[in-house]
Amino acid sequence: MTLSQEIITIAVCALATVICRFLPFIVFSGKRETPEYIRYLGKALPAAIFAMLVVYCLKNVSIAEWSHGLPELAAILVTVGLHLWKRKMLLSVAAGTLCYMLLVQFVF
């Protein structure tokens, strides 16, 4: 690719991103009242999206192949358990990550 082709390729990626991020705000602009269905979606979506993002992070984990998703499972259990106990986000995230790193580096 020439430099100008590279710039166009990057610009096209930026354009697609900007479209997806701005579209809802443009369609449901501040002047008119947001339709009730969309307001409902706005409130109902986050829980579903957070679940989707967790699954998205784990999408390449294979249950069938070696390690069988065990380090992921263990680290998530540590994260959830600690969070239910202490309810401190940073602590839960740090402990879960550390647990995962130790498991994949030394155990599995």
Binding site: V54, C57, I76, T79, V80, H83, M89, V93, G96, M101
Partner: peptide, 21 residues
Amino acid sequence: NTEGLDFVMTAMFVVIFLEQW
């Protein structure tokens, strides 16, 4: 050795999901 550090994003989403739950 940073192997496994990317799990921090997963852990964060798990906690945010749990808070929502």
